[in-house]
Design a protein around this nucleic acid. Structure first.
Lengths: 115, 115
DNA sequence: ATCACCGTCAACCATTTGGTTGATGGTAGC
DNA sequence: GCTACCATCAACCAAATGGTTGACGGTGAT
């Protein structure tokens, strides 16, 4: 298996990026790979907490880890985000059409009766 | 405020769509608005469970509710998905550039040394 | 007015989650 | 071979999650 156990991991992916600390880690990691301790230094929580966050991100496939001696170099993996994005866009594709009309309808109703 | 307390609700949005039942509800709801009981009939859990899921989706802004007598008509709201999509695309924008080179690098290293 | 139905609220339960501190296994540097 | 450092493991804790059953307040229909 070249790519690991990918595909239909949406639970883990969305769950992983639902945490603000984890999103911040990902954003930071977007600037380039970093060691665990170095990542942790930017957050007001313990190293252990960050380590756990990284494990979560890794299991969701969002982060890859390259062990170099005693350092763990963490880097991003774009594939899961592509999956997540694909799901959202598929959803929006289903709606959008009907949504335009519907939302105007609701908005009007809200403006009128809702206070 | 026309739109409520939106903006930077990403925690709630991603958390809401990280549950498979909730994603299924959203997909089903994409076909058009439905009553709570009607939605619940399609899932192997109790009405109460679905009711709670709908409350979660509503608080995340993904579902709107129009009360018509004793029926609650649930419909989709596209805005939060747009926010979620925007965050993901922003992230992908940051990476992508560096990711192409990086991923080939990692993949090569994995194929070579990893077992 | 009664009865049935719709959906939520309340209490409870097991599991997961995000955090802590402390111990442990590796690796690097003297 | 010590000693320092890197990161995870382990145990623990409080809070949140997803599920259940049962009770309740509204609305509709007869």
């Amino acid at each position: 298996m070249v790519d690991g156990d990918r595909s239909e991991n949406l639970d883990g992916i969305f769950s992983a990026i639902s945490d603000p600390t984890r999103r911040a880690i990902l954003q930071q990691l977007g600037q380039g790979p970093e060691r665990v301790t170095e990542i942790a230094r930017r957050f007001p929580v313990s190293l252990n907490a960050v380590s756990k966050h990284l494990i979560v991100l890794e299991r969701a496939g969002l982060v890859r880890r390259e062990i170099r001696g005693r350092d763990h170099l963490c880097s991003l993996n774009g594939q899961p985000l592509r999956e997540a994005s694909a799901w959202i866009e598929r959803m929006r594709g289903y709606w959008e059409e009907r949504l335009d009309a519907l939302e105007r309808h609701i908005a009007a109703k809200q403006k009128a009766g809702r206070k």
